[in-house]
Structures are given as C-alpha cells and as structure tokens.
Design a protein around this nucleic acid. Structure first.
Lengths: 190, 190
DNA sequence: CGCCGAGTTGAACTGAATCAAGAAACGTGG
DNA sequence: CCACGTTTCTTGATTCAGTTCAACTCGGCG
C-alpha cells in the first residue's frame, strides 16, 4: 500500500490520519490474466491503482476489438467516461497479466473526498493530472502517422514488446497486425 | 455574468457570496475575429468562459494548421495541458468570430478554489465534466471514418457550416478540404 | 509428427493525399 | 450596382499507405 500512499503524497500531505482513511477505503484485488476489470455495458463502479501487472482498455466494434490504451504499475485505472457520470461503459478493461490493484468504489471515493482533509483538493489534483496525461497521449493520434505512433509507444513502454503479443500493439497503433508487420520491416531497414 | 453563474450553479450552490467572489475574480474580455486567446509556445495563463462567439483550437505542424476543436457559447475555454502544469503550450486558440469571454487567471483560480466554500469541489466537478466531454469527443477519432466524423460534427454543431469556412471543418474532421468536398458529394448522393 | 496461434509476405483494392486547374462566392472600390 | 481580385470550393488524374484476402512460415506443445 506504500506505493499508493506515495502516489497520493505527490498531491497532498499524507500523514497517519490520511493513511488510515485511505487504507480503509481501498481494498486489494487480484486479477488473473484475461480477467475483466470493466465490461462493456456495465457501469464502471471502481477506480483502481495498479500495484503490479498490466491492463488494456479496448472497445468492440463490428466484432473486432480495438485496444486504445495500456495501463501498468503505479497508474490509476478506470473509465472516467463511465465512472464520473455513473453510466454504462462503451469500453472494456482487462488484465493482460496477473495483476494486483487497490480499488475504491464510487461511493467510497466520494466519502473519501468529503471525509479527508484536502480530500476534494486531492480529487481535483489527481483528475487534473490524469486528464493532462490522457490529452498528451491522445495528441499522438491526431498528428502522427502509424509509424510514428509505433515508435512513440515503444519509447513510452519499452517493455511492452516482451510482455504482450504484437497484435495488441498493432491495434493500439491503429493498424492491422499485417500492416504493423510491414511497418516494422520498413523501420528495420532504417 | 448570469450565464457563468448558471453554469457554475450546475455544480455547486451559488448564493450572493459566491456571485461576489466570482465577479471579482473573472474579468470580461473582448476578442476580435482572428485574435488569439492562446499562442503556441506561451503558457496558458487563463481559463475563459465564452459568453458569445466561437473559437478554434489548433496546432501547427509542417507549416500547416490543424484544427481539432471548436468551442462556443457557454463553454469553458483553455488548454489544460498547458494551464494545469503551467508549461508552454503546443497548441493555439483563436477567435473565429468577435467573441466575449470572462477570464480568470491561474493564480486567481487557485485563490477562488481556496477562498470559496466548495471551491475545491467546484474545481473537481468542473474538470471532471470537461474531461468526460473531451473523452467523448475524442472517441469519434478512434473509431469513426472521416465520413462519420463529419456527420457527427454537423450534428453537434449544426450552425458551424454557416459560421465558418469549410476548411476549418475539414481539418477538424481530419481530412484535406478537397477530400471533404468529395465526402460531401458522396453524402449528398445518399 | 501434426496442430495451432502468431507473425510474415504477396497481390489486388480502397480511400485520402497530392498536384493542378477551374468554378463559385465574397468583398472592396470604383 | 457592377467589375475585379481574392478566397473558398470543386473536380480530375495520379500516387501512396493501409486494408483485405489468402497463403505460407515459424515455434511451441500435445
């Protein structure tokens, strides 16, 4: 739970009182490889903090899964589009490896906001940060070619190639596995 | 200033005390058509609330401007990527029409958060809302073809065609003006 | 050994980009 | 109110990158 304290301490002071509150509201959860964190059509009821492991966000379209984001250690995981307004999710999230997360429910998060000194402030600062990071990620999708996106993705997650099959990466880059294969070929010929 | 009060009242109760504080921290600003709200390379120092008019967000790449968002009446305007961490912006924002905004500086916004009862809470709720809307907007860029994006953009902003030249719309849809022209042709033939 | 999922490779196809030339709309000044 | 020039929009021909469909390779595993 130290990793979570540290992440929160980045935003507000975390003393014993805060640790106490955080510990009671977050609970540990284990996800096996392939298990869902959030399923399409269901309301996203939790925010998680990934201690260990890897997850992917994806949506299903015409029977085809499109992966658009990977989250790993020390990141918060949630579909805010579903979580914030508590409406059914259009997206799914699943573990790509055996994963350990600390989760907090929607209701408990709101309790935490109002119970903890600086709770609201913490909430604002965290969502601001998550927002900014999300925007930066998405920038690449506007301006870059698949080739550039592939290079940036590897730069941001150098371990990804070792951890997951290539077709997840292809999907996240926005091309078919065949095309990624050709892109890799082009790049390897300098 | 009523429009601003109303927008905030959507998130927290706005009594006389709040109106007082909000009025002192926000100041009215007029932008002529073509004037910048934010220039690339500068730090975004303000959040604005658009009372009247229309703005576009864009970035410059290889000497070419790419418009990626339009903001209009009753919307907040800011580049949060630059505003939140107070770092130089990669994006620009300019008025497409004569526009009236109420603006608040970074420092004053933080004062407002800490001064006003429920200030932090308001901040959290507003950024949550903005975040969710931004995500929903961006969804279309992942999953849809330019054709679908064009149709959705017109649906979301039915007045846009009348208010601005088509090449802004093309850019936001993610294609060149020539291609949008062809898309329009295809669509008009049902 | 044969199966199976993952990755690579080939050929034909598609939609947007590009280059380029007109046509239409707009505004400004005579 | 019209004429002219600029800006915006359309259209055509060509090119290019990713898609699709399909075959084939490779490595692990029963």
């Amino acid at each position: 739970m130290e990793a979570l304290f540290n992440s929160i301490a980045y935003f507000i002071p975390v003393g014993e009182a805060e640790k106490e509150i955080i510990s009671t509201f977050f609970t540990e959860k284990q996800l096996k490889k392939g298990e869902p964190f959030l399923e399409e059509g269901k309301v996203c009821r939790h925010v998680g903090f990934i201690v260990k492991g890897l997850m992917r966000y994806y949506l299903t379209q015409d029977g085809e899964e499109k992966t658009f984001y990977f989250a790993k250690e020390n990141e918060f995981v949630s579909n805010y589009e579903s979580f914030v307004p508590q409406v059914p999710s259009l997206k799914s999230i699943e573990a790509l490896e055996d994963t350990t997360v600390y989760v907090i429910s929607y209701d408990n998060l709101n309790r935490l906001y109002s119970t903890m000194a600086n709770g609201e402030r913490m909430g604002r600062l965290i969502i601001e940060r998550v927002f900014v990071e999300a925007l930066q990620n998405l920038n690449s999708f506007y301006s870059d070619t698949p080739e550039q996106r592939y290079e940036k993705l590897l730069l941001a997650h150098p371990d990804l190639q070792q951890r997951i099959p290539q077709y997840y990466i292809a999907s996240c880059v926005g091309v078919k596995p065949q095309s990624l294969s050709r892109i890799r070929k082009r790049l390897s010929l300098h």
